[in-house]
């Protein structure tokens, strides 16, 4: 077995916990290097609380990757709009161009906040995943239900050394995708999950 089950043995308070927490477990180092250190959550009292346990978070480089790719798309859209308006005098181009630019700008503004809201927890029998601030979503997946684990990384991801981990169950709606893990963390997490899933394998 792996270090995963021990992590829930020292439940902490409902306060945002430090990801580089007190457990000196072997995997924590890899999973928590260069990550954010506290989950960002909504302020309203009716929010979904963080609960017990240690939340692991995304790598800080994830925001850079998102901002760069968003910025590149934004620049291309801006260039195309300027080209159309200044050279050919097509002023209507500002309508679609403006909408696209506004959306990209908004995404780039909220990406750092969103990145801090992602978190995952390795509990005794399941993996808990959370994301979102305005629209919160928490999913728990029993280890025995995992069918396969996908790790993907694009060229920009590789440049920053991050990867995206996707967890697939027999249900299409599970939808657990952890973006922006450091590559060692993603591989460690995958190996851990495969190990624990193997031990708890059941039918469909």
């Amino acid at each position: 077995m792996t270090n995963a089950p021990e992590e829930n043995s020292a439940p902490t308070t409902t306060e945002p916990v430090s990801a580089a927490g007190t457990e000196a477990a072997d995997g924590d180092d890899v999973l928590n290097r260069d990550t954010y250190e506290s989950i960002r959550e909504p302020r309203a009292a009716g929010r979904l609380p963080l609960g017990d346990g240690t939340w692991h978070q995304l790598a800080r480089q994830y925001v850079w990757v998102q901002q760069i790719s968003g910025g590149v798309v934004g620049l291309i859209a801006l260039a195309a709009t300027l080209l159309l308006t200044l050279l050919w005098g097509q002023w209507w181009a500002w309508i679609p161009g403006g909408i696209i630019l506004a959306m990209i700008t908004w995404t780039m503004v909220i990406t750092p906040r969103q990145a801090r809201a992602y978190g995952y927890q390795l509990r005794r029998d399941d993996l808990v995943f959370r994301k979102g601030i305005l629209w919160q979503r928490v999913v728990a997946v029993p280890y025995g239900r995992m069918q396969l684990i996908d790790i993907t990384h694009g060229p920009l991801d590789r440049g920053f050394g991050i990867a995206q981990l996707k967890l697939v169950t027999a249900a299409a709606s599970t939808g657990v995708v952890i973006p922006g893990l450091r590559q060692e963390a993603a591989e460690r997490l995958r190996d851990t999950l495969v190990d624990v899933a193997e031990a708890r394998r059941t039918g469909l």
Binding site: G46, W135, Q136, V138, V139, V141
Partner: peptide, 13 residues
């Protein structure tokens, strides 16, 4: 297979 819980702004209020 798994279970999820979600909450939008109206729900939260």
């Amino acid at each position: 297979q798994s279970i999820g819980i979600d909450q939008g702004p109206l729900d939260r209020a």
